[in-house]
């Protein structure tokens, strides 16, 4: 439970950065378009900032989760056989989410700081299990709120994470 606080903080910081990046890029794009269109466009065209994709928060949290597994594997090489297949899944989820999201990659920009890893392997596994349970809920909530075309991807991610929880316990 020590580790849930910092991770959520990371996610929040990251999400705000992602939104800022989107806003800044949208701003540049708008400025460029207006420069091309001339001054009339300035008076006639209302400018709306681009909205963030609803999945960008989930993608950012997935990137944080990948970082958490990488840090744990680096600190606990004895857990490699158990954790490597799960890390592979999370990387595949991140790639799929990134592909699905229009706009800047959630992994671009400043990476989230690496979380600290417990010294004892059992505690490291327990910390991952806690993070994975939160990740199940996040993916399930996203699936339930998603439009039809996105529900299968998000449902598969939630189901995969549910299996990870089982394998970590």
């Amino acid at each position: 439970m020590v580790f849930t606080g910092p991770v959520r903080e990371d996610i929040g910081v990251h999400s705000r950065r992602a939104v800022l990046r989107l806003a800044v890029r949208a701003g540049f794009a708008t400025a460029a378009a207006l420069a091309l269109a001339g001054c009339d466009a300035l008076r006639r065209t209302p400018v709306e900032p681009a909205a963030a994709d609803p999945l960008s928060g989930l993608a950012t949290a997935t990137a944080v989760l990948v970082g958490r597994y990488e840090a744990t594997l680096a600190a606990q090489p004895g857990l490699a056989a158990r954790l490597a297949p799960i890390l592979d899944d999370h990387r595949a989820h991140l790639a799929a989410l990134t592909t699905d999201i229009a706009g800047p990659s959630p992994t671009a920009g400043t990476p989230a700081p690496r979380p600290s890893v417990p010294v004892q392997p059992a505690a490291a596994l327990a910390a991952l299990a806690t993070a994975e349970k939160s990740a199940v809920t996040a993916a399930a909530d996203a699936c339930l709120a998603a439009p039809a075309w996105r529900a299968p991807l998000l449902g598969s991610i939630a189901a995969s994470r549910a299996a990870h929880v089982e394998l970590l316990s």
Partner: peptide, 10 residues
Amino acid sequence: KPVTVAFPGR
């Protein structure tokens, strides 16, 4: 192996 898959049901 692998014991898990990234996209169950796909």
